[in-house]
Design a protein around this nucleic acid. Structure first.
Length: 556
DNA sequence: TTTTCGTTGTTCTT
DNA sequence: AAGAACAACGAAAA
C-alpha cells in the first residue's frame, strides 16, 4: 500500500531515478560512530540508498539565558560542543566511506516520521535505547513505521548486555547489588565472535527532496557567544578522538592489568588517573563492546590482572549494572514513588544549593572540584563522591535530585542511568547504606594532594595560601591571609557550615529517616516525611539552644 | 530466619 | 603502612 504511494510520488518528483531504488534510514542519536555499529551495518546492506540522519533537537541545543551556566535548558555548553564535535567527526568518517551525515532540526520523533513519509525508505535502523525519553519516542516512531510497512531494526549495541535479558533472568526484577548482577550477567553473548569494526564503503545518499538538510551547526550558529578558551573542556568529541584515546589508554598493558579504580588519585589533573573514556561511551563515539574486547585481549596476554569491581572491565560492568537497574525500576530518577529509594526528609535550602553549585562553600577541596566540573565537564570519580556526599548526607542535607540536575547539566559524560544511580548511591538512598562513612571535605583531598596543587590550579585565589592552611583557609592567621592576598570572608568565602557539627547532624537525620523507613516498611508518605522534618528541626533547635546556654555558662 | 558480605571513610594506634 | 574501633544498613545467600 505504502510503497505504491511512494512510487507514485517519486515518479512525480524531480528525480525519476528514485523510482527504481529503495533506501534505508539510519537514525543516529547515541552511537555516534562507524565501528561496531550494527544499525549502520544492517541499514547499508541490500539497499540502493542510505540516509544517515541526525536530528538536532532545539530543546537540547538552543541557548537558555535563564540557565545558571552557558548552554541550553538541558545541557551545558561543554557537552553541546562535545556533541557537535562528535557529529562533525561522524560526518567526516561517513564521507570517507562515500556518504555523509544529514542534519535536520526539530523534535526528533516528528522529524523522523516526516522523513519516512517523504523519502522512499524500506528500512529504519537505530540503536536501541533504554532511557525513558527514547523509550517513549521510539514507541511512536515504531508504530508509524510498522503501520507504513517499513522494517524497523533496533539493535542493542550501546551496552554489553541487553538489560531486559538480565532482568528476565532474575525473575522480572533487576538485581540490586553489583555482585548479583555479575553472576546473572556472565559473559556477553557476542564475546565469542569478533566484532565488525571496519567498513569499506556505504551506499550513496538518497534524494532528500525538499527536506531542509544542513551541515552540523557550530556553537555560534546555535546562538552561543564566543567564550574564552580557558573556560572550556580540554576533551574533544568524536569517534576519532575516542579511538585515539582508547589506544593511548591501553597501550601500557601493565597499567591496564593493574588498574584499580579506588586507588586512583582524584586530584590528578595534569594527567587524570583514569582513562576519561566516559564521555565517548556516553555518546557512543566509542563502542563499549569494542572497549571490552580490547581489554579481554590484554588480559589474555598478561600473567595476572585485576578483576571487577575495581578493574577496567569492572568499570564497564558498573555501567551495565546501573543501566539494568535504571531500566527495570519505575521512577528510578526520583525519590517519590521509587521502590528502591529511601525516603529521606532532605531540606530545600536554595542558598546552600547555590553555594555548592557555584563553588563558594568555603571548603577549597569541594569548591575546586565544582570549578573543575564547570570548566572541564569532568572530574575524577572520587572527586564526584566528595562533592555529592557533601551536598547530601555529609554536610548540607540538600536533596540528591538537585545535585543530580547540576551534574546532569554540566558533565560532558552525563548519562541518565549512571548519574542517577551514583546520586542514589552517594546519598545513601539506594545500593549503599553506610551513612556514617562521610568524606571529609578537608582530609580526604589532603591525603592525595598535601600541597593543595589541585586547589591552587582551580581556585587561583588561593594559589599563594601556605599548604598548612590551604584546605582550611579560615584557620589561617590574618597576617598569613594578607600575605597570600586572600582574606577569608572577602576574597574567598567563609565555610557555609562547620563540617564537624553539620556532619553529626546529618548522621542523626539519616538515622531517624532510616528508622522511619524501616518502621513503615518503605511506605513513607509525604505527610510522614513532613512530620519527621519538623521533628528533626525542633530537635536541632533544642540542641542548639542548649549548646548556646552551655557556652554562655562557660563564658559567664 | 540467620549469616555473610559489601568498589573506594575517618581517626587513632601501633 | 596496617589494623582496630566506630556503628550497624540491606540484599542475597544459606
Amino acid at each position: 500500500m505504502r510503497s505504491s504511494l511512494c512510487l507514485t510520488s517519486n515518479l512525480q518528483g524531480s528525480n525519476p531515478l528514485m523510482a527504481f531504488g529503495s533506501g534505508s534510514l539510519v537514525w543516529f542519536r547515541k552511537g555516534l560512530r562507524i565501528h561496531d555499529n550494527p544499525a549502520l551495518e544492517f541499514a547499508s546492506k541490500g539497499t540502493d540508498f542510505l540516509y544517515p540522519v541526525f536530528v538536532v533537537d532545539p530543546h537540547y541545543m538552543k541557548p537558555d539565558p535563564d540557565a545558571f551556566s552557558p548552554g541550553s535548558s538541558l545541557a551545558g555548553l561543554n557537552r553541546i560542543r562535545f556533541l557537535l564535535e562528535s557529529l562533525v567527526d561522524l560526518d567526516s568518517n561517513l564521507k570517507k566511506l562515500g556518504s555523509r551525515l544529514l542534519v535536520l532540526k526539530g523534535e526528533p520523533g516528528e522529524v523522523i516520521i516526516r522523513c519516512l513519509e517523504q523519502w522512499n525508505v524500506k528500512k529504519l535502523c537505530f540503536e536501541y535505547d533504554t532511557e525513558p525519553y527514547y523509550q517513549a519516542m521510539d514507541v511512536r516512531v515504531k508504530e508509524y513505521a510498522s503501520a507504513a510497512g517499513i522494517e524497523v531494526f533496533s539493535p542493542v549495541s550501546h551496552t554489553l548486555f541487553n538489560p531486559a535479558d538480565i532482568i528476565q533472568k532474575n525473575g522480572g526484577k533487576p538485581p540490586l547489588t553489583y555482585q548479583s548482577f555479575l553472576k546473572l550477567a556472565g559473559q556477553p553473548s557476542w564475546a565469542s565472535c569478533p566484532l565488525s569494526i571496519t567498513s569499506t564503503s556505504l551506499p550513496p545518499v538518497g534524494d532528500f527532496g525538499n527536506c531542509k538538510i544542513s551541515e552540523v551547526p557550530t556553537v555560534t550558529e546555535l546562538g552561543y557567544e564566543d567564550t574564552g578558551q580557558d573556560e572550556l573542556t580540554p576533551f574533544r568529541g568524536g569517534e576519532s578522538e575516542a579511538l585515539k584515546r582508547l589506544r593511548d589508554s591501553i597501550s601500557d598493558n601493565q597499567w591496564v592489568a593493574n588498574f584499580e579504580k579506588p586507588k586512583g588519585d582524584p586530584s590528578a589533573f595534569l594527567k587524570p588517573a583514569t582513562t576519561v573514556l566516559s564521555p565517548y561511551l556516553k555518546f557512543g563515539c566509542l563502542s563499549s563492546r569494542y572497549f571490552y574486547q580490547c581489554l579481554q585481549d590484554i588480559y589474555k596476554n598478561v600473567k595476572k590482572h585485576t578483576s571487577p569491581p575495581v578493574s577496567l572491565v569492572g568499570q564497564l560492568l558498573w555501567r551495565e549494572f546501573f543501566y539494568t537497574v535504571a531500566f527495570g525500576t519505575p521512577n528510578f530518577d526520583q525519590m517519590k514513588d521509587s521502590r528502591i529509594c529511601k525516603q529521606i526528609p532532605w531540606n530545600n535550602n536554595e542558598d546552600l544549593l547555590a553555594a555548592w553549585r557555584d563553588a563558594r562553600t568555603g571548603y577549597p577541596w569541594i569548591d575546586a572540584i565544582m570549578v573543575q566540573l564547570r570548566k572541564w565537564g569532568w572530574m575524577h570519580h572520587l572527586a564526584r563522591h566528595c562533592v555529592a556526599c557533601f551536598l547530601t548526607r555529609g554536610d548540607l542535607f540538600v536533596h540528591w535530585e538537585k545535585g543530580r540536575d547540576v551534574f546532569g547539566r554540566l558533565l560532558i559524560d552525563s548519562d541518565w542511568a549512571i548519574n542517577n544511580g551514583n546520586w542514589l548511591w552517594l546519598s545513601c538512598s539506594s545500593f549503599f547504606y553506610q551513612y556514617n562513612r562521610i568524606y571529609s571535605p578537608v582530609s580526604f583531598g589532603k591525603k592525595y594532594d598535601p600541597n593543595g596543587e589541585y586547589i591552587r590550579h582551580f581556585l587561583p585565589v588561593l594559589k599563594d595560601m601556605p599548604k598548612e592552611y590551604i584546605y582550611e583557609p579560615w584557620t589561617a592567621p590574618l597576617s598569613i591571609q594578607t600575605k597570600a592576598k586572600c582574606i577569608v570572608g572577602k576574597d574567598y568565602p567563609r565555610p557555609v557550615v562547620f563540617h564537624d557539627s553539620a556532619s553529626k547532624e546529618c548522621k542523626r537525620r539519616m538515622g531517624e529517616a532510616y528508622a522511619l523507613n524501616q518502621k513503615l516498611n518503605g511506605l513513607v508518605s509525604e505527610q510522614d516525611l513532613h512530620s519527621l522534618r519538623r521533628k528533626l528541626d525542633e530537635d536541632q533547635n533544642h540542641d542548639d539552644t542548649k549548646a548556646k546556654r552551655q557556652r554562655q555558662k562557660l563564658i559567664g
